[in-house]
């Protein structure tokens, strides 16, 4: 299934990278072209998510779970792929639910920042996949001086896990407060 996975990943990569350019253009422009591009954003992100989930599903079939989850590069690739897919899902949901309101005020810059972050996650995911099949870019060399050796599994200690859970709870509370405010 490795070959099919490689074929399939080109679709979400292309669609999400295009979406990143669209978001950045819309963030800096209110002109007619930017508005036209923005109207294509939800379909673009939807296709990206669908093709991303398809590539993810086929990726899980490349190796048995026992193999994939025992290999540092396999673990890292899967972790980044999961986060990337969830992350672009978040962008789709937000644009879909909020409509053009996401371009109001500070929110447009948050969306632009998220798109850049999503592209970075996508790039790292692709690089890790390249390592698994023996063809990879130098992105991993750039990550090394930044503190992550890609040949080691990305995991965090318990105290960070607890912080993540606490942060998630606070974020949900913020969301509920916001809904109450606008209800």
């Amino acid at each position: 299934m490795a070959a099919y996975h490689v074929v399939l990943v080109h679709f979400p990569i292309a669609l999400w990278m295009t979406a990143t350019l669209a978001i950045l253009w819309r963030a800096i422009s209110d002109g007619p072209l930017a508005l036209a591009i923005d109207r294509a954003l939800v379909p673009l992100l939807s296709l990206g998510l669908i093709s991303g989930l398809a590539a993810y599903g086929v990726g899980l079939l490349v190796w048995p779970w026992e193999t994939l989850s025992a290999t540092p590069l396999g673990r890292n690739h899967m972790l980044l792929a999961t986060w990337t897919t969830a992350y672009w899902g978040l962008l789709l949901a937000t644009r879909w639910l909020q409509g053009e309101a996401v371009w109001n005020g500070v929110m447009r810059w948050i969306i632009a920042g998220l798109a850049v972050l999503g592209s970075v996650l996508l790039g790292i995911t692709g690089t890790l996949g390249g390592h698994l099949v023996g063809i990879y870019t130098e992105i991993s060399d750039a990550l090394r001086p930044m503190g992550w050796e890609v040949y080691r599994t990305f995991y965090v200690p318990d105290v960070t896990l607890a912080t993540i859970v606490a942060a998630a709870v606070v974020l949900v509370v913020i969301g509920l407060l916001g809904r109450r405010r606008t209800a």
Binding site: N104, I174, L177, R179
Partner: peptide, 10 residues
Amino acid sequence: ALNGALGRKG
């Protein structure tokens, strides 16, 4: 949090 803060359609 984002969608809650923005409310329905912003």
